[in-house]
Design a binder for these strands. Structure first.
Length: 492
RNA sequence: GGUCCUGUGGCCGAGUGGUUAGGCUCAGCUCUGCAAAAGCUGCUACAGCGGUUCAAGUCCGCUCGGGACCUCCA
């Protein structure tokens, strides 16, 4: 490809050039949400990050299959209720069927992703729909000698695995230390007595009597272990070795390490060429997460209902807020940051609209192509969207200046600007212009009428009337702009 | 305790050893009936100490601070 893309591979901890296994095809898997709660701001980060990656790969000409799963089989909780399925527990609390809960939160997740414009996935497989594949995979791992059954549950034998393969290659964990239980002195982990060794993890769990979500298997009526779904579904849709696996940094261990161990012990090959991890969103410097109870739901951002929010923020503002930081840096939530993002985004969108109103000149005083090149360079450098945006503001300056008459653009320049904004603002960064919704022509006709009436008042120096029109419109979130010899309006 | 990340100007945040990131805020100017918008200009930086180097925010060491993972988590 003309523009070599470099990405940070967590496996090697270095920036590597991205070279697909079977160009032009690219397989990409991202760990989806566990749908037992409303999606929160933390969810926005990985799905936005990898949405942009998939967009960029497609833009570069690759045929991308992007798989993002839904985890709806529930996992063990290690608090009071031993061995109880999270989803089943929630169901009892709300007196709903487990699958009703799953449906509700899946739907909420989709709504939130739509607002963030993150719905460009190719396949969204559900764990509950792939029990057979998971069972088959477990059978094979047992046959290969890397797993054992114990009291109806099946565990991966990490010690045995570690003899043939290096366990911990992704996370840097050392089996000897895990065996010694370093750091776990104060923890009471569930199901330890069934395991041969502490680092072993469940591939299949026997369901207790009160456990509602359960499926038959050769070992027991039960449910799959946490890591096996991703291994089974990624292998099914992307093959036993695929290009990119993404997710939050908090999944690096044990989840992704477990995936590697399962896949290798089943298929004998490394499942993933490039592992990518986004950093966490923090609030007051601390990770925003379910377990800490300090998260803000995306829905609450959209309607501004959370007490920590000074106002509502729409999906595009949140998307832009995320993109102003690099995906591998931690990002701290703040109203100030969101408000700044909202204004900045508005400036970009206003400027994009202005491109269509530019008058071409015979000569040019600007250099649009260098902006485009700089944007590509930034994307190629581990998807540095923050830098892309900084260059887009140079585009904003050029457009605004050209409109104001302090810069000159040729018709070729205008075409380049149009292409630049279409490519980067909309296609790659996936931003949407949210103002263009209402029945355009009718509203525009009404506005022209109002604007001309106000112009008459102004010509008569009847500023009381003209200001009233402007102020009342502003209350309806319509802002008038008195420019040199014309008046324009924007909906806010 | 182990592994790893991190500390940038009023705020948010980029930064591959050598030239202005960018945004938001604030101040001044231009435009304007006024305002808004837009343009121009300006403002305050690299936690501390020491080292390597012709040159360090950018590499190394130490100190202090913050965080992640080691348990369900995006």
């Amino acid at each position: 490809m003309e523009h070599p893309l470099y990405i940070t591979n967590s496996l090697t901890r270095t920036k590597e050039q991205f070279i697909p296994i079977n160009s032009p095809f690219v397989g990409m898997y991202v760990c989806g949400p566990t749908v037992y709660g409303s999606p929160h701001l933390g969810h926005a980060r990985p799905y936005t990050t990898f949405d942009i990656l998939s967009r960029y790969l497609r833009h570069l000409g690759y045929k991308v299959r992007y798989v993002r799963n839904i985890t709806d089989v529930g996992h063990l909780e290690n608090d009071a209720d031993e061995g109880e399925d999270k989803i089943a527990k929630k169901a009892r609390l709300e007196q709903l069927e487990p699958m009703e809960i799953v449906e509700l939160y899946t739907s909420q997740f989709h709504d939130a992703m739509r607002a963030l414009n993150n719905n460009h996935v190719s396949i969204e497989p559900r764990a509950s729909g792939h029990i057979i594949e998971q069972v088959e995979m477990i059978k094979k791992i047992i046959a290969n000698g890397y797993a054992y059954e114990s009291n109806g549950s099946v565990y991966l034998d990490v010690v045995k695995y570690n003899v043939d393969y290096p366990y911990g290659e992704l996370s840097g964990r050392v089996v000897e230390e895990l065996l010694a239980g370093a750091g776990n002195e104060k923890r009471e982990l569930e199901g330890q007595e069934e395991k041969r060794n502490a680092p072993d993890f469940a591939l299949w769990k026997k369901a207790s009597l009160e456990h509602i979500m359960r499926w038959p298997s050769p070992w027991s009526d039960g449910f799959p272990g946490w890591h096996i779904e991703c291994s089974a579904m990624s292998a099914k849709y992307l093959g036993t070795t695929f290009d990119i696996h993404g997710g939050g940094m908090d999944l690096l261990f044990p989840h992704h390490e477990g995936e590697i161990a399962q896949s290798k012990s089943c298929n004998g090959v490394s499942p993933v060429k490039y592992w990518m991890h986004n950093n966490m969103i923090t609030i007051n410097g601390q990770k925003m997460g379910k377990s800490l109870g300090n998260f803000i739901n995306l829905e609450q951002f959209f309607d501004g209902s959370h007490p920590l929010l000074l106002q509502a923020y729409n999906g595009m503002t949140i998307r832009f807020f995320l993109m102003q930081a690099h995906y591998r840096s931690p990002l701290d939530f703040s109203n100030e940051g969101l408000q700044a993002a909202e204004k900045a985004l508005q400036r970009i969108m206003n400027s994009v609209d202005l491109i269509e109103k530019l008058k071409p000149a015979d000569s040019s005083t600007v250099d649009v192509s260098s902006i485009s090149n700089a944007c590509y360079a930034a994307m190629n450098d581990d998807m540095n969207t923050a830098i892309v945006i900084s260059h887009l503001f140079e585009m904003v300056r050029i457009v605004n200046s050209a409109y104001a008459g302090t810069e000159k653009v040729t018709s070729d320049d205008i075409e380049s600007l149009r292409k630049l904004s279409n490519t980067f603002v909309f296609e790659i960064l996936g931003l949407q212009n949210e103002k263009e919704q209402s029945s355009a022509s009718e509203t525009d006709g009404l506005m022209q009428l109002i604007i001309s009436m106000r112009a008459t008042a102004r010509n008569n120096k009847d500023f009381a009337t003209s200001d009233k029109i402007r102020d009342e419109l502003l209350k309806l979130n319509i802002r008038l702009k008195d420019e040199k010899d014309t008046v324009t309006w924007v909906k806010e």
